[in-house]
């Protein structure tokens, strides 16, 4: 098989047109999903069964079914109800864009909630005890002691989840959205040249994911001063806290 380079370049530039939509869907669903995920994770660690149980059920259902089912239920399924078709939500739920973003957000919330819960539970009990002993409690304890440590602990898992989300946005093409994979499918069915199109689209996804991985590695480094080599002396460290 000979690779046709002009066609390769043409495919690449065409596929780049899908990148903004891919990124938008990722960003929108990751941000919304994160808010819901924090809520779910707090419900899971609340030690109150009437909060824990619904969160568990939510996570079980969204992790146990394919994302494609979730997208189809929202985009195609909801139109079965006339009540909904006449509600104020309909202008949103009618559009593939909002349906895909909603499904992606609900889906990632379930996975992220478990990552966040893992991070929260990883904070050593002794440190929490020590904070309580100094009189911290409730929100202050969460904000000053638990959350900063949990955040660092869950970064690797969360970076994986974002990569999964970048890949998952491809499913938006099944509900007519023309993001990278949607354009790729169209190009393939027009040209019957799957290999060239696949190489271009694959390279685009790998590039996006590479950037995500590097960004998270940098963030983890920035948030982990104690894992870096200790400074030679304290004298050359300016008082950052007051600056």
């Amino acid at each position: 098989m000979v690779i046709d380079f002009p066609f390769l370049w043409e495919s690449f530039t065409t596929l780049l047109n899908g990148v903004p939509l891919t990124l938008q869907l990722t960003a929108l669903s990751v941000v919304t999903g994160a808010v819901l995920a924090v809520l779910l994770a707090l419900m899971r660690v609340s030690n109150r069964w009437w909060l824990d149980l619904p969160a568990q059920a939510y996570i079980f259902v969204f992790r146990g079914t394919p994302l494609l089912v979730q997208i189809y239920i929202i985009y195609y399924g909801l139109s079965q109800f006339p009540e909904l078709r006449h509600s104020i939500l309909w202008p949103f739920l009618r559009q593939a864009y909002w349906c895909a973003a909603l499904a992606l957000a609900l889906n990632t919330a379930a996975y992220s909630a478990e990552i966040i819960r893992g991070g929260l539970l990883s904070v050593p009990a002794g440190q929490i005890e020590a904070a309580r002993a100094t009189g911290m409690s409730g929100f202050l304890l969460m904000r000053r002691i638990i959350f900063p440590q949990a955040l660092r602990q869950m970064l690797p898992g969360y970076s994986n989840e974002i990569i999964l989300m970048v890949k998952s946005t491809a499913l938006a093409s099944t509900v007519t959205l023309m993001e990278v994979t949607g354009i790729a499918a169209k190009l393939i069915s027009q040209s019957y040249r799957p290999i060239e199109v696949f190489i271009c689209a694959g390279a685009i996804y790998l590039a996006i994911n590479f950037i995500v991985v590097r960004a998270f590695a940098a963030l983890e480094y920035a948030l982990s001063p104690e894992r870096r080599p200790a400074p030679a002396s304290t004298a050359d460290q300016p008082e950052k806290a007051r600056a």
């Binding site: 093409s173 099944t174 994979t181 019957y192 696949f198 694959g202």
Partner: peptide, 17 residues
Amino acid sequence: GIPDLLVIYLFYFGSSS
């Protein structure tokens, strides 16, 4: 690193062609 859907398209259209 790449979407599964893309791989499915590659295999389907690749072997079809």
